[in-house]
Amino acid sequence: MSRAGAPPAAAPTAGETVLELRDLTTEIRSVRGLVRPVDAVSLRVRAGEVVGLVGESGSGKSMTAFSVMRLFPTKAARLVSGEVRLRGRDLVPLPQEAMRAVRGREVGMIFQDPASYLNPVLSVGRQLEQQLQAHAMGRGARARIAELLRDVGLASEIAGRYPHELSGGQAQRVGIASALACRPALVIADEPTTALDVTIQAQVLRLMARLQREGGVAMLLITHDLGVVAEVCDHVYVMYAGRIVEEAPVASLFAAPQHPYTQGLLAGVLDLIEPKPIEVAIHGSVPDLASPPPGCRFHPRCPHVMDVCRRETPPHFEVGDARAACWLHDGAPGAEATA
């Protein structure tokens, strides 16, 4: 494999922290007021690791991903505070041009609906070529594109096709090829399989997992699907109403969920896609982020709600190898409050 163009950063060593978010906060000015879809989110992804980010629709998962890229689907959104450390370097103070060099080069992104994220009037090859050119890898682009397409299991003739001539699975393979095109250190995949047929979902997921392992990249995988989490993730963050409520290695999370929200999810009473209340007495769904409930945002739906939950925001308590933002763990044996 020949590498043309800009000198690549040295490949991340296994275990190195590739992405670290610290108290990342993003706001959207909307007609209903100021919304904080990402509220003091901290998370970490290491090289060679797949980290899951799960949560109900509207909990702020995509906004977290866009905040990393500092690229939003609406002009009303703005990253207001916190740090986005990519391999140690904070991206937040970077000027736009430096940020542009990061996008698609150091961080690749895979989107949910592959077809709508490709320009319908440009051929697949041209779109990949543009990306390589944008990062000074235009020389030898043709060969590189053929190689990329082969890596994702597509024939090199696909380069001459237009998006509408591709099946959903093929389009998402192109999306994966684009995310990996410049050998990034980090790939963010935002529900990469949701829009695909069930049979194709497994194939695409396996492909992503294989490429991730072979390339040793770090991956942040946003998903609704706990099955996917169990299958490919090493570590999981659970997001609720703009905040991280629990974080744990996959095995621990499934074995012993610590946050009532996660417990509800795993018990299947809370469906990620169509949230249902845990008990009849606990009504409501994801809170309106324009006026979130005070204290613990989950309290209107929580079966264990206490007085303190309504007043004060729970900090993260360490429980074994997990961390959960829930007052139930306050003073519990072995629990320790962090940030």
């Binding site: 690229l71 543009q130 944008a134």
Partner: peptide, 11 residues
């Protein structure tokens, strides 16, 4: 969406 995606590719 595809404009957003092309920005995400670093164009």
């Amino acid at each position: 969406d595809y404009i957003l995606a092309s920005r995400a590719r670093g164009l």
